[in-house]
């Protein structure tokens, strides 16, 4: 009798505890999502300086710098709604502190994908549109008549097949001549992410090869190294940019 009584008590206790815990959990409705920005060339992880990679136009190229903005993040739910964060994140491949961007206070729910802008939208891409930090000032796009910031600086060298000597390339993207040129990125997760007051890590990879091959084969020789005011080059890069990112992993912390 005593046994039955004590097991009844423990069951009651366990039940209360579960009830208590679930109630508590319900109170912390929101979670965190860390977005990690990594870089690759094809299947290899990007190495700056002196690593040489082939590209679709046939050149070997080497990357010296990679800096860019992403902004206007949306976490999409399976019911068609989305959680939005309209901030900009600056990534410099040389600076580990810029590797991740945290979406705070993400509501619980089932998320099926992520979208964002590579670059800045019309509202942010004006002179003084971002906080007046030395980093943002260094990204300014000062061409007379244009506004805002470089979206991306991808700089390096390539083996010019026509001349047989090394030349420099600078994929500097931004808005010019009234064309906004930012790239809209949409990524589906392989499996839905069920966020429940916890913290998730989403790893993204930018494949630099993609800037140079699809849908346009971007030939450094065909465009001069100065493309900031060249809308043909900007348009090609904008279209190539749509599939430079992929999701490499979505994991609960």
């Amino acid at each position: 009798m005593k046994n039955i009584y004590s097991s009844f008590l423990s069951i009651l206790f366990a039940f209360t505890a579960i009830l208590f815990l679930t109630t508590c959990k319900k109170e912390s409705q929101n979670g965190f999502v860390h977005l990690h920005f990594n870089h690759a060339v094809g299947t290899e992880e990007l190495v700056l300086n002196n690593a040489w990679y082939p590209c679709a136009a046939g050149h070997l190229f080497s990357v010296v710098r990679l800096k860019y903005y992403t902004s206007n993040f949306s976490m999409h739910r399976s019911d068609g709604t989305a959680f939005q964060v309209n901030e900009a994140h600056y990534r410099d491949a040389e600076t580990p502190e810029t590797e991740s961007f945290t979406l705070k206070d993400v509501p619980n729910g089932e998320y099926t994908g992520l979208s964002f802008i590579l670059g800045l939208d019309e509202a942010a891409n004006v002179d003084g549109g971002l906080p007046n930090t030395t980093t943002n000032i260094n990204m300014e796009w000062p061409l007379p008549g244009d506004q805002g910031y470089h979206y991306m600086k991808l700089e390096g060298k390539y083996d010019s097949l026509s001349t047989g000597v090394l030349r420099n390339f600078n994929l500097h993207t931004g808005a010019t001549g009234g064309n906004q040129n930012y790239v809209e990125i949409s990524l589906l997760f392989h499996h839905p992410m069920r966020l429940n007051g916890d913290t998730w890590n989403i790893s993204l990879a930018m494949d630099l090869e993609e800037w140079l091959e699809h849908p346009h084969v971007y030939d450094f020789d065909a465009f001069e190294p100065t493309i900031m005011g060249n809308q043909d080059a900007q348009q090609a890069l904008k279209e190539n940019g749509a599939d430079v990112f992929s999701v490499t992993s979505v994991e609960r912390e």
Binding site: T134, I137, N138, E140, P142, L143, P144, T226, M228, G229
Partner: peptide
């Protein structure tokens, strides 16, 4: 100014911004 702040002279990528240096 136009030469400095366009790719004509392209001084601004290293000496640009209000401080005229990228540090």
């Amino acid at each position: 100014f136009d030469i400095f702040f366009t790719e004509k002279g392209d001084c601004f990528h290293c000496h640009g911004g209000i401080l005229f240096t990228d540090n």
